[in-house]
Structure formats: C-alpha cells, structure tokens
Write a protein that binds this DNA or RNA. Structure first.
Length: 506
RNA sequence: GGUCCGUUCGUCUAGGGGUCUAGGACGCCGGCCUCUCACGCCGGUAACACGGGUUCAAAUCCCGUACGGAUCACCA
C-alpha cells in the first residue's frame, strides 16, 4: 500500500509555523516511504475562512520549500482539495449514517444547549456534553419537524459505556471511556460539515494512510474512529505530534510569540533554516547533527525518533542556525543573490518607494529609511518615547491599545489600520497627534518617518505586533494586574464598538 | 473541575536496565585568534521532577504524587 499523508490547514488567519511543522513531518514520512503528500484546505467554517488566507498559506508553505503531490493549486486524482468544493459529499455521508442508525437528527436550540451547559457546569459533576435529548424522538415526530422545516443538526451516536482504544504510533495504547465522548455534531444547521465529519470522509476518499497531526486532537480521536467504524471503513494509522510551545510552555500563540511564517520571512530567516529548525523540534538526526537539509532529513527520517515533550520554539537558536546557513551555504555571489531576492526585489521596492521618493534628496538618504524597513527588531530606549503632555503610562497604554485593536483586524492594509487606530485614539480620549506619537519610534525607531499606516502595512502584522510589544516593554511593560485592568476597559470599548457596527449594518 | 498526554542542563535534545562521574547543541561566562566587532577555535556553567517498588544493578521498567500541557463548540 502506498503511503499517503496530508496536511489540512484551515484558512482562517496568517500562515502559522505550526502548520509548516506538521506539514514537514507528514512530508518526510511520506517521502521516506516513497509515498505522497497531499495538501487539503479545510474551509468548512464559512464565517472565518478567507481566500486571501488560503493563498497566503499556500505561498508560505511553498516558500519553505515544501511541495505537495496533490492540492488545490496542483490538482490531483482525488480532488477537489478544498472542502468547500466537496459540498454534497458530506451531506450524502451524513445521510448514510442516518440511514444506518449511526447518527441522529437533533432539533435542540442553542438556547437549550446553553442552558444545559450552564446546568452541567454548576452541578459540578464534571460531565459535560449533549444529553441525548433528541435521541428519543419518534420517527413521526422527526417527520413532522422536518416537514415544518425546523432547523436541525446531525449528531453522531456514541456508545454510552465501554472504552475506546486509540492506537497511536508514538504512544502506548490510549484508552478513553466512551462516556467522555460527546455526541458530536457532524452536519451543522447550515448544511456544512464539522471538522470531524469532513476530515474522516476526506481522509478516506483521499486514501490517506497515516494521519500525522497535533496532539490537540488526541481527545477527539475516538470520534474519528467511531466514524470510520460506522462507515465500515478501515481507519488510518494515527500519530500525534507534540505541540510547539511559547516560552511559558503554553501552546504557541501569536499573542506571546511571533507565529506567522511571514514574520520569519520578514526578519530574514532563510526558508531552509526555518525548515531545518522545525525539524529539530521534537526530532533529532541519528548522529545528532543540528544542521541538515530537507533531503537529508528525509534520508534519515525515523518517526520513532520523535520525543514527546512539547518543545519551546526558541527564536534565538533558530537565529544561530540561520547564521550557519548564511555562512556555510553561500559564497558572496549567492549571498548577494539571496539579499536581492529578500530586500531589493521589485515588489518590496515598489511598495516602499512611493513613500520614500518625496523624502529623498540624495539617493543615500535611503539609508536611514532602510534601517526600519529592513530590520527585524529595533533598538529602542525610553527617551525616544518622551512626550510633553503624556505620561509614560499613557504612552504605553496607547501602544498596547493599538496592538490589541490591530489584532482584531481581519485584513491587513493601510486604511483598515488607520481606521482602527483612530478609533483607539477616540476611545482613549486622546488627540490623534498625541496618540500616534509613540507609534513612530515603536515602528520606525524615529520620531518622524514615512506615513505610519502605509509603513505598518508593508512591515506586516507580526513584525508590527512584535515592535509594539518591544516598545511597550521598553516603557516598563505591562504587569499581569495592569493588563487585566486595561483589558477590562478595552473589552468594554470593544463591545460598544461591535454593537454600534451591528446597528449600522441593520 | 472531568478526561487525556507529557516531564533529562534556562532552552533544543542524546540515551530505552550495567559502558552515565549523564553526551552534544543554543544561551551565558572565560580564553585564544585579531586594528574593532563578528566568525572560528578552546574551556567553563548547568539537568535525569519527587516518593515508593521490581532488580545484583534504574535516567532507563512498574505504581503513586507533584508539576506542565491539551481537550471538554453548530472552530478547526
């Protein structure tokens, strides 16, 4: 049997290094077995999925040097590779389960479920989940409700007792009691499948043999195994990889650590170094060599060499490794070439030059601007932020407010950034001029520079977030307590804003 | 809180009953090289979470505890 693995990102945000990490291991495993690696887009969440995000994920993954044998951009024999284009397949399969009596229709309202949830929480029994209410509906009642076009979902039937044995490639057999497994919604009321249904149906139809994914899925593995069994399909081999962590050991998240592949690209990390570093996460070469190419990794890959403790993503060590790649794998011509591609490429130049042209009296004036367009982090000190009217706490607050507000932004472009930040100024009752003052040193290292919003747009979301965080740090940072207090005010403002928005759209 | 997964230097890791006085790498510290810095080279710092068992012998196997993480959605 041909080994087939896949990575299945959801296009709901910036391309995440965690996606590249999971993709890398799937890729190596497949290639080591002379198999195929597939890219599938899981965009069943219509609310959050965007095609821009999908394009960025594809581009970023390609940038790392990973390639896929089948995918939405390259096609393949098991397509389409976008779940939103596989539409009816899921509804058909939900119907199959309904017919087999392995699933049931549930007409419960979200109000009832919320109430149920609250009750379960307060009773403190520790048992949460659907109570099986609609399981007792008679066929007549169901036909009646269907005729009345009541909205409903389809849920999976799950045994009430016994244990599910999950076989994981890296661990001993994992036992999870069926009573712990919720009667998962398979088909949402909008007719779209949930992850669980779509994932199982697609993995089966795409003939995936090994599911290598993050550890966060262990607890829902029984649902998946149940589905395979209900369909009468053979389940793939499961393998759960340890999660990448923040320095505080929590799951890697953008609030605490830059997670976007764009960010690493922007600070000048070489794709081969990033992939190399990700390969060192939870895995090591048999000879313990730290630096290796993708081909070398495939050649020596052995999934048993994965260690299970969750590795902390250490930017410092990545930087060291990147330095080795720069020094050891490039002569001067090659390095010049890399630099041209990275910084002096027409795309970046064309983005930046319109801002620069009015400010250039001599070509050499480019030097002071390139300092912040080409830098990763800036060297800042508190004096740069001194303001004649505002206290350093106010300045800090402005930066933090901006950082939070910017995180809510769906699209990253100058106008949206401008609007969002202007709203912050209003909320903090500061004149725009005063509010924006600290953003110049934070983003550019200078009191005045190119237009803030265009500059931020070019620098990208993660680098901007990182620089704002640096600046806040220089101003003394935010204590846990202080953050909680600010957060409360911020959230109140946010709520008001959203309500206003809702009114406007109505 | 329930369930599940994990735990070797600050960090990434090697090791999977004796070869462990626990090895390598990042970081940090010191030195060499050198017009400076960096690179490079040399050296130092620092860990088997804890308690019981099994065994002639435990970092390694078993049990418990502690700690960390994940998960408990009509999100993936």
């Amino acid at each position: 049997m041909k080994v087939r693995t896949r990575v299945a990102p959801s296009p709901t945000g910036d391309p995440h290094v965690g996606t590249a990490y999971i993709a890398l291991f799937n890729y190596c495993f497949a290639k080591q077995h002379d198999g195929q690696f597939i890219l599938r887009i899981e965009d069943t969440d219509r609310e959050r999925s965007t095609s821009e995000s999908e394009a960025q994920i594809l581009n970023s993954l390609k940038w790392t040097g990973l390639t896929w044998d089948e995918g939405p951009d390259v096609g393949g024999t098991h397509g389409p590779y976008r779940q939103s284009e596989r539409g009816d397949l899921y509804a058909e399969h939900a119907q199959i389960l309904l017919d087999k009596g392995e699933a049931f229709r549930c007409f419960c309202t979200s109000e009832r479920l919320d109430a149920l949830r609250k009750e379960q929480m307060s009773s403190g029994a520790g048992k949460l989940g659907y109570d099986g209410h609609c399981l007792s509906l008679s066929p007549d009642e169901i036909t009646q409700k269907l005729a009345a076009q009541e909205t409903h979902v389809v849920r999976l039937k799950v045994p009430r007792d016994g244990v599910c044995k999950v076989t994981d490639l890296l661990r001993d057999e994992i036992e999870i009691a069926w009573s712990e497994v919720d009667m998962q919604v398979l088909l949402k009321s909008d007719g779209m499948p949930t992850y669980h249904l779509a994932n199982v149906v697609d993995d089966h139809h795409m003939e995936i043999t090994h599911v290598i994914r993050g550890e966060e899925w262990i607890n829902s593995a029984p649902k998946h195994l149940r589905l395979y069994e209900a369909f009468g399909w053979e389940a793939p081999i499961l393998c759960h990889l340890p999660l990448l962590r923040n320095p505080d050991k929590s799951k890697l998240s953008k609030r605490k650590n830059p997670t976007s592949i764009h960010y690493y690209q922007k600070i000048g990390v070489l794709p081969e170094a990033l992939l190399n570093y990700l390969g060192r996460m939870a895995w090591s070469m048999p000879n313990e060599e730290e630096k290796f190419s993708l081909d070398e990794m495939i050649e020596h890959f052995n999934i048993d060499r994965i260690s299970l403790g969750g590795p902390i993503f250490d930017v410092e060590k990545l930087t060291w490794l990147n330095g080795r790649w720069i020094r050891e794998n490039h002569d001067i011509d090659q390095l010049a070439q890399r630099l041209m591609e990275w910084a002096l490429n027409p795309k970046l130049l064309k983005e930046v030059l319109p801002m620069l042209q009015p400010r250039l009296d001599r070509l050499s004036d480019i030097g002071k601007f390139s300092s912040y367009f080409l830098s990763g982090h800036l060297e800042l000190n508190a004096e740069q932020f001194a303001h004649k009217k505002l206290s350093s706490e106010q300045i800090n607050q402005a930066l933090v407010w901006g950082m939070w507000r910017l995180d809510e932004l769906k699209a990253w472009e100058a106008e949206g950034i401008s609007n969002a930040l202007r709203e912050c100024a209003v909320e903090l009752e500061l004149k725009p001029r005063d509010f924006f003052a600290p953003f110049y040193p934070a983003i550019t290292g200078m009191k005045s520079a190119t237009p803030l919003f265009d500059t931020m747009a070019v620098l990208g979301r993660d680098l901007v977030r990182a620089r704002l965080r640096d600046a806040s740090q220089v101003l003394g940072g935010v204590s846990k307590k202080g953050e909680a207090r600010w957060k409360k005010t911020y959230e109140a403002g946010r709520k008001q804003r959203l309500e206003q928005q809702a009114q406007e759209t109505n």
